[in-house]
């Protein structure tokens, strides 16, 4: 056995160096290679070179994290697939049945919100006799989460989103870039609340969407006020003649953090 080994050309071992490096040799094969490396300077140099290369590569190669926006896009697309498949299988069902179960639950949530709104009416300074801003925004927010309703313009670039609103709404909303704060921009859309078309700018944190509504409102600037309805959190503030509302299912701590970043940009 050992006599045989000394006759082996280095080529045989060269082919085994990578396998040795990757730890995929059987113990006796590995011992065999190691014994050769101890006696052959040329193969030992090559092995050192390979292992140094492997060290450099494995220590320096970047492992990327999938962006939150991508995760949100995939989840959105998955739910659309389900919806389409459901409708393909049951083409004659009434439209409402095509909506997947969890959207139906959300819809039920809106109904509950509407029913209970009379009880919580005074929560945020509403105008008597008309639905409160929170009611309208809750409905708009939940509707926006349904497939295909979140954004009219999809862009992670604030310089694409802001000009998109020109000519669509009668004001130019703030679209700060908040990537560095961990709130990537998803896009924008227009929506109809408080009796007017308003710009909505959409941000994300993990799979949570944050809708930021804005409309002109006379009155002095005010600091953020928070409220909660049906598990959704609302933060509103006023500045520069504009009233802002941020709506999300994100926890209140992170939503406050978001609002603070938004206001300082």
């Amino acid at each position: 056995m050992s006599d045989e080994k000394s006759d082996m050309p280095c080529d045989r071992y060269r082919d085994a160096l990578d396998a040795r490096l990757d730890g995929v040799l059987l113990p006796d094969e590995a011992r065999d290679v190691d014994q050769h490396l101890a006696t052959c300077a040329s193969c030992a140099r090559e092995y050192a070179m390979l292992s140094e290369t492997q060290r450099l590569v494995s220590e320096n190669l970047m492992r990327y994290a999938a962006p939150d926006v991508l995760k949100a896009r995939i989840r959105g697309a998955l739910s659309e697939t389900v919806e389409r498949t459901d409708s393909a299988r049951t083409p004659r069902r009434a439209p409402v049945r095509r909506v997947p179960a969890w959207w139906r639950q959300l819809a039920a949530g809106i109904a509950i919100a509407a029913a209970s709104s009379t009880l919580t009416y005074s929560a945020l300074g509403t105008r008597a006799g008309s639905p409160s801003a929170t009611d309208e925004l809750l409905a708009s927010h939940v509707r926006s989460l349904m497939p295909g309703h979140l954004t009219d313009v999809v862009s992670t670039n604030q310089h694409n989103v802001k000009p998109w609103f020109n000519g669509r709404v009668d004001m130019s909303p703030s679209v700060p870039g908040l990537d560095s704060a961990g709130f990537p921009l998803v896009g924008g859309r227009t929506d109809y609340v408080r009796g007017r078309a308003v710009p909505v700018v959409v941000y994300a944190r993990r799979q949570h969407m944050i809708n930021v509504y804005a409309w002109p409102e006379a009155g002095s600037a005010s600091t953020p006020r928070s409220s909660t309805r049906n598990g959704y959190h609302f933060v509103t503030w006023r500045g520069d003649g504009v009233e802002y509302w941020a709506v999300s299912d994100l926890n209140t701590k992170e939503l406050d953090e978001f609002v603070a970043s938004f206001r300082t940009k």
Binding site: E46, M49, E52, L56, V57
Partner: peptide
């Protein structure tokens, strides 16, 4: 791939050993 990387990275056999 590793041998090509070693060249690209200038990993010298002498230096590494």
């Amino acid at each position: 791939a590793r041998r090509r990387l070693a060249v690209l990275l200038g990993v010298d056999a002498q230096e590494a050993s």
